[in-house]
Every structure is written in structure tokens, then in C-alpha cells.
Design a protein around this nucleic acid. Structure first.
Length: 482
RNA sequence: GGCCGGGUGGCGAAGUGGCCUAACGCGGAGGUCUGCAAAACCUUUAUUUCGUGGGUUCAAAUCCCACCCCGGCCUCCA
């Protein structure tokens, strides 16, 4: 609320309640949505990794103007539209490694809670009817504007709000909308209609998390008016403080053809959908790209930067692959699968790395710094591998611990969840089949054994053009997809 | 116009009073390894420098003031 970093003090020690404004389900999600979801996904993961019991609530807005508009354009019931895009959302999130929330409430399933809140606001004189709608009277709520650092006078002077003749104040917002002919509608004490947008988050967060819950998150653009309005509704109706900490993530910008920078948004039509991206990049690469910037900073999106993230991801997996190979060759009894979480007591020489990681995450979820630690560990593993191969058997245990720790820490960020071989051999929608690659590699091997290097290099070149990079090692030739 | 963010190397991005002669990644250069590569490792890539100009301080990328640029919010938007 103070718009600055503060130590996290929970309502109840050991338990955290978190609500994040989800998406309006009328279209596919874009990178901007991916950012919020990934950011709060790691916040939840980290709080849990710190031993907190977290209740994570993330809603679906499944009724609003755009949904109605889209459904009527497609001439389908709005429920069919929203079901379709809720399913798409879940598929996208799974591909990004974003876990499900504990509760994923839908607006249309909480009409009763919303109506109860509206009734309470009416009873307290904080809301009024006008033209069949119910409005919130912002000037009856003294704290209005506190979250966004605005005051009513300033807001009004610069207001772009179209004057609604039924509103007493142009900043008043609708709680209940009277149904227009042909629109979906529900019964209410104020006539057939549907809820305004802001009321759903107040009603649903209150229902599942109670008052004065710990953390409320969402995109920067929701700070005003959405979150300001939520506060007005919730605190106005309950008379209780509502949220302890607000977290807002920064925006994703895109560079236009003319080099201008602007925010990615549905209304500007300049977005890339998550599924378009995932056709070309593993979900973890998209995560790395997002988490390599602090969650509050603006983030510029471009395919070049995504490519950079992919190279970084390759580096991390490369260390895992190298460690696995070295351990298998020299100490087959060791398994560096990352399935075992090393005990803190066994971190040994890795303890300072782990400490750096947790210190970074403790400081307002500084994922760029935490990721730097991941790369530090990868480098140390890579350095240790030749020592093991030269016969220093004791480094085997150290490498194994390093790998286990690397995967353990990366998992908190939702990274390195894949098997390295699988990661490098992942199949795109086009490209050569694995058997074909193996056949060409064998051909090249024959040529090399005949010392026909020009022929061998031609085959390697052919594979390279197909996006396959070869690596010759003492144990044989391995390959990676670019 | 009001209110918020932000401007750090070729690029991305941490760092918000001394550990910064600025983390980490990508990219570049040279080297080791290799038939040649790839990956990895080593060295190197901001040393009159952290948008510009002033100021405070023993000490500033970090605090203060002014200015210049960029983005966002003030209407639906993550």
C-alpha cells in the first residue's frame, strides 16, 4: 500500500493467502498474460519452498462486454466461448509450467456473493441505483485513490470518462448492469442483469480468503481503476481492511515496425499469443525470458531476446547433460537425476550459492539474481567435470550434489524440469525424424573412419541446415536440435 | 494536464551510500580441446563509467534539485 518494499508479515504465521486477477476468457492469452501467470506462479512456488502453506486463488472473468460481443459475433452461447478459452488457458499454462491455482473461481458461479456485497453497499449508502444500474459512489469512500496515489480532484480534472447521465460522479463505476435485450442476464433484487467487472474480485477473494488476506496481485494496468475499486467495494462493505500487500507486475512492451515501443495489449492488437510462441520455443525458454527481468520492471518482447533466452537455457541443460555423462562414465552408481533434494547439511561447497539464491528471492523475488546463481552453479559443475574424468573420484559426489542443488533451485523457478537429452532432442513440428538423424550420423561416421572428411563435413552441414548440431566426443557423436 | 515507472557495456539485465576497479546471460575477439567443428574451459570485451547539468557527503550508479528522453495509468486491458 505504501508503494514500496516492505517485509512480509503474514496475517497468520506460516499461512499465506494470495489472490491474482486472472483473465477474461474471450481469446487466447498473449505474452502479457504469460508474464503475470509465470510471475505469480514463482511467487507461490517460492513461498511454498519457504515452508508456507499457501492458498492461491486465481479467477476467470467469464461474463463481460467483450465476451458477449464475441459470442454474439460467432453466434454461439457465451458459455461455449468461455469454456473454449478456459480450456485453452489451461493448456497454455501447462505448457509454460504454470501450476493450477488452488481455487479458480468463475464470476458466473458467484452471483449470490456479488449480490450480497452490492446489497450491503446499498444499505451503507455507498451505492445507489440509476437508470436500472447500480453504481458505487466513490466520494462516499474517503480512502478512494490511496492505492494508486491519486485523489478525486486530480482524477476528475483529467478524466476521459464518458459522462454517464445516471452517474453522480464520472468516476463512479457500475456494480450491477441492467440487461439489454438479447444479453445474458441473471435475476437480482434490482432486476434482471449482470455484474459489473470489479465486483467479482471483491466477492470471490473475500469468499475464499476472508478479510485482510495477505497478497493481491495483478498486472500494473489493473492498479487503477480495478484494484482501487476492489478496495472501495470490499472495505466499504465489510468495514475491514482488505489486503495486506499489493503486488503489481510490469508490462510487456513490443517494438513496432517503426521502432516505437508500446505496451502489448489486446486493444492495440500487437500481441503474440502464447501458443504461437510455444510452437517455436519450449515453455521453459519463455519462462527464462520472463524471469530474467525483475517482475516489476517493464519487459520488451522480441524474438531476438527469446532466442537469447534459449541459448541461456541450452547452457544450463548442457551442464546437466555433461554432468550426467561424466557421472555415468565414472561412477555409474550415482544418479544425478535431480530427484533427490540434497540436505542443507550436505551442500558443502555449494552452500554459498544456495544462500545467494535464497537471499535474492527473499529480496522481493529478485529472479534475475536468482538465475545468475543458477549459471554460477552450472559453471562450477562444468569446471569440475574434467577433474572427475581425469580420475579425481571425489569430485563425483560434489558434482552430484551440485546437479541436485541446481535442479532443486531451478525447480523453484519452474526451470530445468526436463531431462537434458529430451530437452535437446525435442521434436519441433517440422524437421528430421530421429531415425533419419541417426542414419546420417552413421553415414558420417563411416566417412570419418575412411578419413573422407569432405564427405563427413557435407553430412554435418546438411544436418546443421536442418537445425541439428553435432557433437563428437570420445564416447561417440551426440546431437542437439537448435 | 495530473499521477506512476524507467534511462547501467554491442544487446538483455542485476545492483539503490563504501564489498561496484558494476553480478549473471547473450553476442564479439583470442586461446585450449578437435581431422575440422560443436559443447565446455581459460583470457578478453563499461577502468575520464552508470541519460544530462548542478549539489550533499570523507565516500554516489546509488541521496537532493533542475533538465532531457522513453513507457505506462487517468476508458476495456495482465
Amino acid at each position: 500500500m505504501g508503494r514500496k518494499k516492505e517485509p512480509l508479515v503474514l496475517r497468520e504465521p506460516g499461512r499465506a493467502g494470495l489472490y491474482v486477477c486472472g483473465v477474461t476468457v474471450y481469446d487466447y492469452c498473449h505474452i502479457g498474460h504469460a508474464r503475470v501467470m509465470v510471475v505469480f506462479d514463482i511467487i507461490v512456488r517460492y513461498l511454498r519452498a519457504c515452508g508456507l502453506e499457501v492458498t492461491y486463488v486465481r479467477n476467470f472473468t467469464d461474463i463481460d462486454d467483450k465476451i458477449i460481443q464475441r459470442a454474439s459475433a460467432l453466434n454461439i452461447p457465451f458459455q461455449q466461448l468461455t469454456e473454449q478459452f478456459i480450456a485453452a488457458f489451461h493448456a497454455d499454462m501447462e505448457a509454460l509450467g504454470v501450476g493450477k491455482a488452488d481455487v479458480e473461481p468463475r464470476a458466473t458461479e458467484h452471483l449470490a456473493e456479488m449480490q450480497a456485497m452490492i446489497a450491503s453497499l446499498l444499505a451503507k449508502g455507498l451505492a445507489y441505483p440509476g437508470g436500472g444500474d447500480i453504481f458505487y459512489a466513490v466520494d462516499r469512500f474517503p480512502a478512494y485513490g490511496q492505492l494508486s496515489g491519486k485523489n478525486l480532484a486530480e482524477l476528475q480534472s483529467g478524466s476521459r470518462v464518458d459522462v454517464d447521465t445516471h452517474k453522480r460522479n464520472p468516476l463512479d463505476f457500475v456494480l450491477w448492469k441492467k440487461a439489454k435485450p438479447g444479453e445474458p442476464h441473471w435475476p437480482s433484487p434490482w432486476g434482471e442483469g449482470r455484474p459489473g467487472w470489479h465486483i467479482e474480485c471483491s466477492a470471490m477473494s473475500g469468499k475464499y480468503l476472508g478479510t485482510a488476506f495477505d497478497i493481491h496481485g495483478g498486472g500494473m494496468d489493473l492498479l487503477f481503476p480495478h484494484h482501487e475499486n476492489e478496495i472501495a467495494q470490499s472495505e466499504g462493505s465489510t468495514g475491514q481492511p482488505w489486503v495486506r500487500y499489493w503486488l503489481h507486475n510490469g508490462f510487456v512492451n513490443v517494438l513496432t515496425d517503426s521502432g516505437e515501443r508500446e505496451k502489448m495489449s489486446k486493444s492495440l492488437g500487437n500481441f503474440s499469443t502464447i501458443r504461437d510462441l510455444l510452437a517455436h520455443y519450449p515453455g521453459e525458454v519463455v519462462r527464462l525470458f520472463i524471469l530474467n527481468s525483475h517482475y516489476r520492471s517493464p519487459l520488451d518482447f522480441s524474438t531476438e531476446l527469446l532466442e537469447t533466452a534459449r541459448h541461456g537455457m541450452d547452457r544450463l541443460y548442457s551442464a546437466l547433460a555433461g554432468a550426467n555423462k561424466a557421472l555415468q562414465a565414472t561412477a555409474p552408481d550415482r544418479t544425478a537425476t535431480g530427484e533427490t533434494v540434497p540436505d542443507r547439511e550436505e551442500w558443502g561447497s555449494w552452500a554459498t550459492d544456495a544462500a545467494h539464491f535464497f537471499a535474492a528471492m527473499d529480496d522481493d523475488f529478485n529472479t534475475p539474481q536468482a538465475i545468475a546463481v543458477l549459471f554460477d552453479i552450472a559453471k562450477k559443475i562444468n569446471r569440475a567435470i574434467p577433474l572427475l574424468e581425469q580420475g579425481q573420484a571425489e569430485t563425483g559426489a560434489e558434482i552430484q550434489t551440485g546437479v541436485d542443488l541446481l535442479r532443486h533451485l531451478a525447480a523453484i523457478l519452474g526451470l530445468l524440469g526436463d531431462d537434458p537429452d529430451h530437452y535437446f532432442h525435442r521434436q519441433g513440428e517440422e524437421g528430421l525424424a530421429d531415425v533419419e538423424i541417426d542414419r546420417l550420423i552413421q553415414q558420417r561416421l563411416d566417412a570419418r573412419q575412411a578419413r573422407d572428411f569432405p564427405a563427413a563435413d557435407r553430412i554435418r552441414q546438411q544436418l546443421q541446415e536442418a537445425g541439428i548440431t553435432l557433437q563428437d566426443t570420445k564416447e561417440g557423436t551426440t546431437w542437439r536440435r537448435a
